[in-house]
Design a protein around this nucleic acid. Structure first.
Lengths: 145, 145
DNA sequence: TAAGTTGTAATAAAATTGGTTACATGTAGT
DNA sequence: ACTACATGTAACCAATTTTATTACAACTTA
C-alpha cells in the first residue's frame, strides 16, 4: 500500500506555519488550507508536537514551529507522523516452513536488502528540509499570475 | 502503511522455483513452504506469470522460472505483484485550497521529492537479482547444522 | 463567567490485505 | 472417454488502516 498521506499533510502543515507565521494558525485555519477536517489536523499536530516539531498549547489558538526551518527534515516529519509502522517499510510473511531450505532462510536473505532499500529512501528524505519546501513554494507561486 | 508482503512472498516463490527446480512445484507445495493457502500462491503466481517471470499452465502441475536467474531483479518482482499501487509509493492529499499560497503549490513542491525518494529505493531493488537471493540462502543454510 | 480552542474518544465508510471455500477449466495418464 | 489432479477465478470474510466526523472534556484568555 501507499505511504499515508499524513506525511504530505504534515509537510503541508509545517510549511504553512512558516509561510503564514504572522497570523494565528488554528486547526480550523490549517484544515481550510489542507481541505480536511480540523480534527484530522489536530491529530497530526499531536504527532508533530510529540516529535517536538511544533509548539501548541491546549486552549490557546495557533501553533508555531518548534525548530528552525532548516532543522526540520522531511524524514523528521515522516517519522513523526508514523507514515510507516514500526520502521517497517516492507513487510515479510511470518512463519515460513523451517523444514524447507528456502523457508528457513528467506527472512534472513531478504531483510538486509529491504533495510538497505528503506535506508536509501529515508536518506533522500533526510536531505530535504522544510526550508527547501518553503522556498520551492514561494518560487513557484511567483510564476503564477 | 507497509508494502504488501506479496512482495516478499513473490521473492520466496521465485527462489523456491530455482532451489527446488528438480521437483514439481505445485501451488500446494509452494504454499507449504511459504506457510499460507495455495490460492494465495496461485493469485501471486498469476501476477508473476502476467509479468512473464514464471511459466505455468492451467491443469499441469508445477511452475518454472521464465527467465534466467540473474535476469529477474527484485524490482521486477516488486512491480509484478503490485507491491505499491500505480507507481505511487507516497500518497498526497487531494484538493488542497487553491486560495492559499501553500495549498496551491504544495503538490508541485512535494511530488518531485517523493518521486526522487521512490526512485532511489527502486534502484536499490533493481540491483539485486533472484540469483543473489538464491546464493545468499544457500550460503546461509550451510552455516546451519 | 463566557467564548473559543485544543485534546481525545467513539464511530463510520471505504479500501486493502491475507485467507478460505467452491467450482469451472484444463491436462495427462490409463 | 474417464479419472485424477492442478490451475484459474469468483465470491466471501475477518482484520486492519485510512480519512472523516460528531461529541465533549479540559484549558486559556478576556
Amino acid at each position: 500500500m501507499s505511504i499515508s498521506s499524513r506525511f504530505a499533510v504534515g509537510i503541508h502543515i509545517l510549511t504553512l506555519l512558516e509561510v503564514n507565521k504572522d497570523e494565528v494558525n488554528s486547526s480550523e485555519f490549517i484544515a481550510a488550507s489542507v481541505n480536511t477536517n480540523p480534527v484530522v489536523i489536530r491529530k497530526i499536530m499531536g504527532m508533530l508536537k510529540k516529535a517536538e516539531l511544533v509548539y501548541v498549547r491546549p486552549g490557546v489558538a495557533g501553533a508555531e514551529l518548534a525548530r528552525k526551518l532548516d532543522e526540520i527534515t522531511l524524514l523528521d516529519v515522516y517519522k513523526a507522523v508514523e507514515a510507516v509502522p514500526e520502521n517497517e517499510l516492507f513487510s515479510v510473511h511470518g512463519n515460513p516452513n523451517p523444514q524447507c531450505t528456502v523457508g528457513r532462510n528467506i527472512q534472513a536473505a531478504v531483510l538486509p536488502i529491504f533495510a538497505g532499500a528503506q535506508a536509501v529512501m529515508e536518506k533522500a528524505l533526510a536531505h530535504v528540509t522544510i526550508e527547501d519546501i518553503v522556498q520551492s513554494i514561494e518560487e513557484q507561486d511567483k510564476q503564477i499570475e
